[in-house]
Write a protein that binds this DNA or RNA. Sequence first.
DNA 1: GCAAATTTTGACCGATTGGACAAACGTTAG
DNA 2: CTAACGTTTGTCCAATCGGTCAAAATTTGC
Lengths: 210, 210
Amino acid sequence: MDTKAPRPRTRIQTEKRELILEAALEVFSAHGFRGSTIDQIAEAAGMSKPNLLYYFRRKEEIHETLMQRLLDTWLAPLKELDDIGDPLTELRSYIRRKLEMARDFPRESRLFANEILQGAPRIKPMLEGELKSLVDEKAEVIKGWMRAGKIVKTDPWHLIFSIWATTQHYADFDVQVRAVLGPNRGGDGRFEDAARFLEQLFVDGLKPKG
Amino acid sequence: MDTKAPRPRTRIQTEKRELILEAALEVFSAHGFRGSTIDQIAEAAGMSKPNLLYYFRRKEEIHETLMQRLLDTWLAPLKELDDIGDPLTELRSYIRRKLEMARDFPRESRLFANEILQGAPRIKPMLEGELKSLVDEKAEVIKGWMRAGKIVKTDPWHLIFSIWATTQHYADFDVQVRAVLGPNRGGDGRFEDAARFLEQLFVDGLKPKG
DNA sequence: GCAAATTTTGACCGATTGGACAAACGTTAG
DNA sequence: CTAACGTTTGTCCAATCGGTCAAAATTTGC
C-alpha cells in the first residue's frame, strides 16, 4: 500500500534528462566510467554540476540509465535473426546491421566495450541471463541450418563471437583502424571495404561446399 | 657535452621496478589508467606509495614504460609472418599465435585495448608510424600470395583487422565469452574451440576454390 | 496575477588523489 | 668500521572529486 506514487515527469525533466544522457554518452564512451567526472558531463550538457545532480542524484544513476537503454538497441539485430529467410541472406543481413551500428553508433559500442573490459561489474547478471539465453536460442537456429546442409558445420557460438568481434572492432578500435589504413583508405570508404571483406569472409566461407 | 650520464641501475632498483610493473599491469588492465590509483599499484606491489614513487616519479611514467614493453611483444607475431613458408600454414600459425597470446597474456591485451578505446592518446604516433609500416609491409606479402593464386583474393588490411579482432576478443571480452558459453563450455576448453573455429573460418575460407 | 511547485545556482564539505619532502633506515665499498 | 650512497617511511599539501544544501530564480496551474 505504501508504494509512493512517483511524480510524473515534467516537460523540462524529460528534455534535460535526455540532454544529460547524450552528454554522458559522449563523455563516458571516451574516458570510461571512472575516467569521467560529473563536471565534464555537466559542461558537455551545458549546465552546472548541481543542476545536473538535480536530475540524476548519483553519477552511477546516469551510467545505469545509459546502459539499460544501450542494451535494448544493442541486442536488437541479433533478435531479428530469423529462421524464416534464407540462412546465408539472414547472416549477411545480420553482419551488415552490426557493421552499420558500429558506424552509426560508435559511442554506444565503446561504452559497452568499456564496461566489458572492466569485467562487466554492472551488467554481468544480464550477460549470464538475458544475453546467454538469446545467444543459445539463436545458436539453435544456426545449428538447424547446419543440419539441413544450408551452411557448413561449425560452432555457432564462436561464429556469433567472431561476428561481434569483427564488426565492433571498427567502432572500438577505430583510431587504430584509421591509423593503419592511412589518410587515403582510412576515409569514409572504410566501412564499405569492411562490409565487402566481411561478407566474403563469412558468407562465402559458410557456403556449403559444392 | 652536457649529456649527464644516467646512473646505472642498482640490483634493488631492477628488482623493484619489475615488481612495480607487474603490479601496475594487473591494476591498469583491470581499471584503466584513470581508474587506477598509485596506492592500488603500491599495495599490489607490496610497498608504500612514497616508496613506489621513488622508482617511478610519476604515474604516467609507469604506464609509459609498461606500454613500450607491451608493443614489442604485441607486434612480434605479425613480424614473424613470413613469405617463405606455405601461405595457409603461415596464416594458421599467425592466428594460433595471436590466440595463444590472448590466452596467456590477457592483461596485456586489455591494457592495449584500454589505450585504443580511449583514443590512443599516448601511442597514436606509433600506430601511424611503426604499426602502419609493418601492416603495409605484410599486406604486400599477402597480396603476393593472392596474385600467385595461393589464397583467394580479398582485402589484406581488413583480413589482418579481422584476425586481430577475433583473437583479441577472447581476452578483451573474456567476461562476456564466459558468460555466454556458461559454466560447461566456458571452461578451459574455450580456447581450443575458438582455435578450431577460427582455423575453419580463415584457413578453409581462404583456400582457393577447387 | 499569484501561490505552489519546479528549476538553477553558488557556496561548501569530506574523501580521495597524485605527488613532495625531509628524516630515518639499510647497504655497500673501501 | 665508517662514510657515502641507496632505500623506505610518515607526514603533509594542493587539487580534484562526488555530492549536499539553502536560497534565489523561474515555471506552472489555477
